[in-house]
Write a protein that binds this DNA or RNA. Sequence first.
RNA 1: GGACCCAUAGCUCAGCUGGAUAGAGUGUCGCCCUCCGAAGGCGAAGGCCGUAGGUUCGAAUCCUACUGGGUCCGCCA
Length: 580
Amino acid sequence: MNLFADIRALVIQELEAMTAEGALPEGLSLANVAVEPPRDAAHGDMATNAAMVLAKPAKANPREIAGKLAERLAADERIESAEIAGPGFINLRLVSGVWGGVVKAVLAQGEGFGRSDLGEGRRVNIEFVSANPTGPMHVGHTRGAVFGDALASLLAYSGHEVTREYYINDGGAQVDVLARSVYLRYLEAHGQEVAFEDGTYPGDYLVPVGEALKAKVGDAFVDKGEQVWLEEVRDFATEAMMGLIRADLAALGVEMDVFFSEKALYGTGKIEAAIEDLRDKGLIYEGKLKPPKGKLPEDWEAREQTLFKSTEFGDDEDRPVQKADGKWAYFAPDIAYHFDKVSRGFDELIDVFGADHGGYVKRMKAAVAALSDNRVPLDVKLVQLVKLFKDGQEFKMSKRAGTFVTLRDVVDEVGADVTRFVMLTRKNDAPLDFDFAKAMEQSKDNPVFYVQYAHARVRSVLRKAEAAGWDVSEKNLLEQEPGTVHPAELATMRKLAEWPRMVEIAAKGHEPHRIAFYLYDLAQAFHALWHRGNDEPELRFFQEGNESASLPKIAIAKAVSVVISSGLGILGVTPAEELR
RNA sequence: GGACCCAUAGCUCAGCUGGAUAGAGUGUCGCCCUCCGAAGGCGAAGGCCGUAGGUUCGAAUCCUACUGGGUCCGCCA
């Protein structure tokens, strides 16, 4: 049930009836007709812009259209009043029974209240994290992981068939570096003194990998040349790193459906096939690039190379797919990878990248547009940097200084739930300040706590009611008829009614942060209602010895907890039963 | 030199694909604890939505140009 969609359907229906009667010209587009909550609650429960949107194409006065439409809308049994305001808004006030109906819908549908078939079962592939398999995940990856996972849940909740996917960059030079680093640890495990020079990874996390390698191959690789051990050590190390990363993801509560290996694209003809596909479309050619403007690299020289005509799809330059030595540039396997995704039949692709990949977006979109003949849209979500704060001081990450903050550091300190929620209280394209102290603070300025507190309060009320021997099952609460609904309660019910709409908006825009903000608003409405009970005992949810007065209010409270629970579920956060 | 992102209250940020008098939190100021949980509650003050143009019934939102900040810019991935 989506009350806003229902009322919008009513508006559309009446507009069509007006057209049929000749009050409006034929053929008007009703696509922009919206039914929204008014900014100011004093204006009513809902407002529609229908008259203003249609005034121009209908060549009529907006207030005139509004007048006719309002009259018709007012005749509906759900609508108490329809008033024209401002330039031609129609403010609708709904009969109070409608709001009670919302509570009932929540209780009856549970977690299903807010689910929709918006996606119509379209298959969406979300690629996220995709951290290089060269070490544990750090905070930057964490934000991408949380964002991608929440977006995936949001789309699944909205009727999409979602695949969570991780692209393992195990095909490039960085895994050779990893292998050499592990080899050093391996020598170390054999008692040798080793030095970690530039271009190797000195992190302690490779110590156990070196030891494990020793346990596996003994001294077979000691004092041998790279050609003997590189390949095997590389595989061994990559696997070990992926083990680390999987464990990190698990600690955060992220579960991937697919791990896709870059290496698996090499030697199988997949890259060549993807490039050939583009070549057949006339989008691959041999040529020279213009030198980049501004400061030139020292050794720049124009060179003939294999280029992808990404400019045909809105990119600024054509992009090379091959390096000078004839090997594929990183872009080539990435094209092949996306070609693979397209050919797996996805209707929509989403890539979640770090902000430092911003320059890569256009060419990737160009590639997907070309590969899919513009059939499959690719949305690239760039996740901005996370700034860490400890005790109010910015805490700079630096591999060299050893102040390298891993996902584990954060999760161990504040827990997965808090980490996830905090990271979702910001748009993905805005930088995020993560303050350890604030994340743990139990006060109103900590949204995590505030939302959890609302949920815990409801559970507390339910426990009390149960202790009093009352039946607070959904079934029984559904049968409660509230006598008169207090205006303070209406505010909370209105918020509940917005949930399906909010999910839809968030899903359409690929913006899971909206869910977090909505939950904060809902919690706020609930807390406000709770506190009214201090002064007005008849508003309390649990009224000692007065079951019949309490149960309708408990129904509202329970509905709030259901929606909070749904919302937190999308964000991947466990709702709190109690706080201490 | 170019590309992408950002600019909204003193501070940290929302703003629902163009709607009405731009909202939260924090900070400041004023009230409120015999009360289902005061680790709070109610209220007030606080704004040239970076600047200048444009699009239209209507712009924080869309377009252009500036200004300021971030990220990045063949043969790294």
